[in-house]
Design a protein around this nucleic acid. Sequence first.
DNA 1: ATGTTC
Length: 475
Amino acid sequence: MGMRIVRESPYRVRIEREGDMRVPGVVFASRALLPDPVTDRSLLQVVNVATLPGIVVASFAMPDVHWGYGFPIGGVAATDVDAGGVVSPGGVGFDISCGVRLLAAGLERAELSGRVLQKLMDELGRAVPRGLGRRAVWPLAGRAQLERVLAGGSRYAVEQGYGTPRDLERCEDGGAVGGADAAAVSARAMERGLGQLGSLGSGNHFLEVQAVSEVHDEIAAKAFGLGPGQICVMIHSGSRGLGHQICTDHVRAMEKAMRRHSISVPDRQLACAPAGSPEGRAYLAAMAAAANYGRANRQLLTEAARRAFRGVCGTDLELVYDVSHNLAKIETHRVDGTARRLCVHRKGATLALPPRHPDLPEDLADVGQPVLIPGSMGTASYVLAGVAANPAFNSTCHGAGRLHSRHQAAKAVSGRELRDRLEGAGIAVRGASWRGLAEETPEAYKDVDAVVAAAEGAGLCRTVARLVPLGVVKG
DNA sequence: ATGTTC
């Protein structure tokens, strides 16, 4: 595979356009973080995405890029909707609207004794349904109520008493994506969604109690409601079986429709359809529904965490922000000096709105959007902020990025061993399965500090605060 | 990520 890679700056390389590529590839990575094009398939995936109909500017990869289904995880691709640009379910991923929310407690690290932390973790462990299966904080009454969740997201959850109107001001899209249509969601996806609302899931999903260890930008941190030593809760979860089923259903439908649209792709996992075609619109409507399910899910998990904090510590949790890192959005951007309507796919890439962006709440206009970066288990997490002149359609990294497969990880360490190591380091662990724990060993991930430094160095965002884990409830 | 294989 002879791709030509040119380093343009310490945190940016270009993959030269050749063959069927419509645009070049651009990878934001230091030398150390750049995947090996020979042993790692993720740069080949960046090249494959560059062939998609309607793609503009470049096929981008964030510093935490790794191999995924069709598109790389850590990929950003924008297509011109009014020029036949496509939408691809593989460009969003199976866990539609997977994302992160951060809550700030009215409590400092010094005020949380080891004994109280253990009690809090026990309570959170009880209150947070997790792992594979069908348990939920909110068992829905039936299909009609699920349809209201799919249309209203966190907004509907708050209307039903799960949270406060203030929460919605700190949610991307005000807590609900427009254009959701339950008619585009299969009966099977609906069935899977009925019993899982308010559950963490498995894999890299978690709920952590964290403390702010470093403040890099005092003004932005203050605007976000964060200070040194502050106790926080970070929730990383998505749209569970419902989002997964929607992805499966629409990949299948697009595979069938591609020939009719005269589209051919180098990898069948890149199945896609013009964003304006019936198949493209159906996917976008179902994707929006799954996005709203994912947001409502994190809203429900928030309420579970709030109950635990009130019960054990007598303190409340204020929402800092909720942002997705697996989503496609129709956005307007200037391309070659002209405003274009683009379908921006972010898969393992986080929206990072700059200061003054109209979608920001008023009180964050001066500092930009909070960007929440979950680290691997036992390592730091970050709060970043969006910056002006982002070169990748207002996107940045989404996490540490996997380095080794789940299988490799589980071979390297046992779950019990890992739990003991984390507990020994003062991190309380409430897991779901030993195998799941082992698969998430931090050795299987890139260095989140290096990923964030690269993202900042590449001009994708700026660092606001670093957080360290005190306790983890693991899916 | 995922009722971890339609």
